[in-house]
C-alpha cells in the first residue's frame, strides 16, 4: 500500500533528523537522573590548604594577610565575610574560603564538564526562547517516530500480532510504577 511506503520513508528521514538530539536528551537524561550522586554540569576541584592562623580583625588586612600566607596570585576581585573569622575571596572563575582561626582554606575551582554541560543546557531548556520551539518540534517528531515505528512491520511481526505484546510491555513498566508509587 502506498501509505506504508510513505510511512517508512518518513520514519527513516525523521529518524535521521532526530538522531543527534535523541543522543543529547538520552545522555543528559541519565546524567541528571543521578544528580543526587554527582554533579552533572561541573567538575569541582577542592584543594585544602593549611596556614598559621591569623588575627581576626578588619576585613581588608585579613584579606591581604591571607593572600600572602596562601600564596595567592594577588588581591581578589571581591571579598566577603559571612562570619568574622571566615573570609571568602573571589577570583575569576575560582574562589577561596578561609577560616582564619582554624588556619584552613579551601580553594574551589569549578570546571564545566565538556559536552555534558552543553547537553544538559539543551535538555533542561535553559536557553528558553526559540529553543523551546525546537524542543517542542523534537517532541512532536518523537511522537511521530513512535506512531510510524509501530506501523512498519507487517504479517507475523505487525502491531496487531506479535507487536501488540511488546507495546503492552512498554506500557506496563511505567504504568506499574505509577500505580504502585502513586495509588497504592
Amino acid at each position: 500500500m502506498k501509505w506504508r511506503r510513505w510511512n517508512v520513508a518518513l520514519h527513516r528521514d525523521v529518524g535521521y533528523t532526530v538522531a543527534a538530539l535523541t543522543v543529547v536528551y538520552a545522555v543528559s537524561g541519565v546524567a541528571v537522573n543521578h544528580t543526587a550522586d554527582w554533579n552533572p554540569n561541573y567538575r569541582v576541584t577542592r584543594e585544602e590548604r593549611h596556614f598559621t592562623p591569623i588575627a581576626v580583625g578588619e576585613r581588608d588586612p585579613m584579606v591581604a594577610e591571607l593572600v600572602k600566607v596562601l600564596d595567592l596570585p594577588g588581591p581578589p576581585k571581591e571579598a566577603f565575610r559571612s562570619r568574622p573569622e571566615v573570609v571568602e575571596l573571589f577570583y575569576d572563575g575560582w574562589s577561596v574560603r578561609a577560616d582564619a582561626t582554624e588556619g584552613v582554606a579551601t580553594v574551589e575551582r569549578p570546571r564545566d564538564r565538556p559536552v555534558l554541560r552543553d547537553f544538559n543546557f539543551l535538555h533542561l531548556n535553559h536557553p528558553k526562547g526559540a529553543w523551546t520551539f525546537v524542543a517542542d518540534l523534537y517532541a512532536a517528531a518523537l511522537v511521530f517516530m513512535a506512531g510510524s515505528g509501530v506501523l512498519i512491520a507487517r504479517g507475523r511481526r505487525s502491531l496487531t500480532r506479535r507487536g501488540k505484546w511488546w507495546v503492552m510491555a512498554g506500557i506496563a513498566v511505567p504504568a506499574a510504577f505509577v500505580v504502585v508509587l502513586r495509588y497504592l
Binding site: V44, K77, E78, H126
Partner: peptide
C-alpha cells in the same frame, strides 16, 4: 538556572 561562573560577581 544560575551557572557556577556567577560566583563572586555583583
Amino acid at each position: 538556572s544560575f551557572p557556577m561562573s556567577v560566583k563572586g560577581k555583583r
